[in-house]
Every structure is written in C-alpha cells, then in structure tokens.
Design a binder for these strands. Structure first.
Lengths: 220, 220
DNA sequence: TTATGCATTAATGTATACACAAATGGATAC
DNA sequence: GTATCCATTTGTGTATACATTAATGCATAA
C-alpha cells in the first residue's frame, strides 16, 4: 500500500484511539509513551500532535504531556452554535446552486438510510447515515474552508455523541427536517433550506447540551 | 521578554514576513532556507510551518518547499461568507449577553477612532480600528472556538486588504453600520444586531470580490 | 505541622545525522 | 529532434542525542 508517512499514520491511529475512547478525554500522555505505542520516534508523534492540536483534539502542554481535550457541555454549546450557522449557510448555497436530482442522489440516499435504520432500531447505522447527510450537505455548499471548519467541529460532536446516542429520544423529528431541507434544495429555495436546517440544528444543540448537563459529562 | 521558544519566534517572524509581503503569496521556500534566515535549525521551522499550514497561511508540499498560500478572489468569497455568518452570530450573542455601557467601551472607542481616522483621511488608522471593532465584537460573543475560526479567516482578509485598501471607495457607509450594530447590542436587540452586521459583511464581500476580480489579483 | 529551599529527575525543545525518494539533467536510442 | 533511461543531486522524513528547564521530593527550619 501507498507511500504513507509515519506522521500520517500517527495522526490516523491517534484519531482512532481518541474516538474509540482508548485515549480518554482529559488524560495525559508523554510524547515518548505515544512514540513507543506507535512504534516510531518522537519526531513524527510531535508533528502529529501539532496537527491534532490545531483541530482541537489534543492540547500540548510543556512538561505535562499531550492532553486529550475534554469535551464539556459548554464546549458542545459553542460547537453547535458554529455548526448551526455554517451548515445552514451551506444549505442555502446548495439551494442556490441549481443542482439536478442526480446531484442530490447521495443526500437522498442518506435520508432513506436513516429511515431504514430507524425502522430497524439500529442507532449506529442511523448515526452513520446522519453523518453522511450532513457531510454531503456541506459539500454541496461548495465552500472548501467551510467544509473544513465544519468537519473539525463535527469530529468533536462525534466524541460526545458516542455517549449520548443511547440516552436520547429517538430522532424521528430529525428525519422530517432532513426531508424538508432536501426538498428546499431541490426546489431551489435557499431561505427555506437555511431556516429549516437552522432550527433543526438549534433543537439538536439544546437536546444534547441538556443531556450533557444533566449527566455532568465533564471531560467525557 | 521571556521564555519564548524558537517555534514561537518562527511562527511570529514568518507571519510578519507573510503579511508584509516579504514572503509573497505563491512563492516557495525550502525548510533549510527559512531555517537559515531565521537562524535556527529545521526542526522548529517545520513545526512552525505545520501550525501556519493549519491556519491556511502556507502549504507544505514534499520536495517543493513551503508555499505561501495565494489568496484569490474565489478564496475571499469563501472567507467572507464564513465571516459573515460567524460574526453576525457573535453580534446576536453579544446583544443577548446584557452588557453594560462600560462593557461596550472598547467597541465604542473603535467606532470613534474609525470616524477620526476617516476625517483625517488616514486609511491605515481606519483599517486598524476596523480590525479592533470586529475583534472586540467577536470577543463579546463569548465563543472561544468561534473567535479562533474568525481570527484565522480575518488573517487572510488582512492579506488581501493590504492591496485593496487604497483602491476602494471610502468606507463611510461602513461606520454607520458599525454604529447601528453597537446600538442594537446596547439595547439588547439580537435580531437587529445580527441582521445589520450580516448585511454589512455581505456588502463588504461583494465590494472586495469585485475589486479583486476586476484587477485579477490571483495569487496576490 | 507547614513552609521554604535545594538537589534530583525527567520531559521537552532543538540540533544534527542519515536514509530514502523524488526531481533533475545528461546520455543514449530511436 | 524527441523520447527513454539512468545517474546524480537534493529535500524531506525520521531517528537520535543532548542541553535546558520545569516539576518533584526530600531535607531543613520555623
């Protein structure tokens, strides 16, 4: 397989370990420890950590090691606020872009898959399709920087969702919203696309923040 | 001056060189060249470059050196779209936060300074105060991540503005908008704060993009 | 017991060395 | 003249070594 460097490998392995919880939020790790774990020297580990730091996944603090960023309810509120604005903008832009039905196939598929998953009570599959929907929505907005910012924020959300997914009410309203957004984009109605998605995200934020607050998930 | 590391120095010197144009957009620079220029080894230069890359100021391409990111009109459109949404959100949040007149002193001062600068025909002073206004506005919105994203985007705008500042119409409408935003925040009217600022930024975007397009400033 | 200072420990920041791979240029074949 | 191949050059990716400096713990004094 391809010419993948140690830095790339470090980034992807560390990401996996962070998302899986193997490196728990709030925990500290020396560069040399991680280097040994990953089977490489400190140099690529440092560079990887620098990248992950830029994405808010870790914090490098001199002499105290690399800390896996905690995710508090307050953090989630910040993040959802940003996601709400940027995704809604993407939805509006997508509606302006005059996409054909074919262009929107991926988006439609994601919605169908969410329905199916919901019917089968498969929350993991639902979450995966939900991710897919939002990723595609942003892509259709055609703003590379926006996509990047959103993807960084979504990474953080994913960490919190790992825990809350099974505690929250079934996301049935959610799918109705997705459908409306899809329709607005297909009908080239930017304002509706924007407003529906905006409300959708605000509701999601309130639900998640309440959940995190209630269960005091500080740091995890 | 204290315990500043070489990496920090590299970041700040490179930033200065990028903003001043000493390292022109689109130019390539080997790690070893920059290391020599900065009087340090490649290691801290690499780490600095990695950070600047995360902020979109440079791109590291194996064997082709560190490229100073070009700034095209299309890039500016993307960036302004993001700024428009996020700053408007910050304005709304600031209006919700119930700040006292004292809390808003910095914001008010920035507006006054812009007026003064405009009267004296000092566009550099105007740009500085304008920056200050927007930075303070975002700070009042109390969203650390949003502040960070906005500041990264504003860095890019600053690069483009260096060239366009003296070509564009005098920003008189601009100040009127700022005053309205200030008032809306003081009067705790989130919707007005949001909408006025939103319109303000959209107008700025259209003006800037048109200018860049007209003068074909691709890469600078 | 609590606080202060000092010696020790240990993690980081940085320099350096080197292997590998990609780009370059020149020579050869067509 | 153009294309192909090979040797050379050169930049990067990574390992390693080491000095610096912050944290730690212990001893001593109040």
């Amino acid at each position: 397989m391809g010419a993948t460097t140690n830095v790339e490998r470090a980034v992807s392995v560390l990401r996996r370990m962070i998302f899986s919880g193997e490196l728990p939020p709030g925990s500290d790790h020396l560069e040399s420890e991680l280097a040994e774990t990953l089977g490489m020297s400190r140099t690529p580990v440092r560079e990887a950590a620098l990248m992950l730091q830029a994405q808010g996944l870790v914090e490098m603090r001199p002499r105290r090691g690399i800390r896996i960023s905690p995710v508090s309810a307050a953090d989630m509120a910040e993040i959802y606020d940003i996601l709400t604005e940027l995704e809604s903008l993407a939805a509006a832009r997508a509606a302006e872009a005059e996409y054909s039905k074919a262009d929107l196939a991926t988006l439609a598929a994601a919605i169908t898959d969410m329905d199916t998953a919901l019917g089968a009570d498969d929350l993991r599959a639902w979450a995966e399709a939900d991710d897919r929907f939002h990723r595609e929505l942003v892509r259709l907005g055609r703003n590379a920087r926006l996509s990047m910012v959103v993807s960084v924020m979504r990474d953080q959300v994913r960490r919190a969702r790992a825990m809350t997914l099974f505690m929250r009410p079934k996301p049935t309203q959610s799918n109705e919203d997705h459908r409306k957004v899809y329709q607005a984009i297909a009908e080239r109605d930017p304002k509706t696309a924007h407003d529906v998605h905006h409300a959708h995200r605000e509701a999601a934020r309130d639900m998640l923040v309440a959940l995190l607050d209630k269960h005091q998930f500080y740091g995890f």
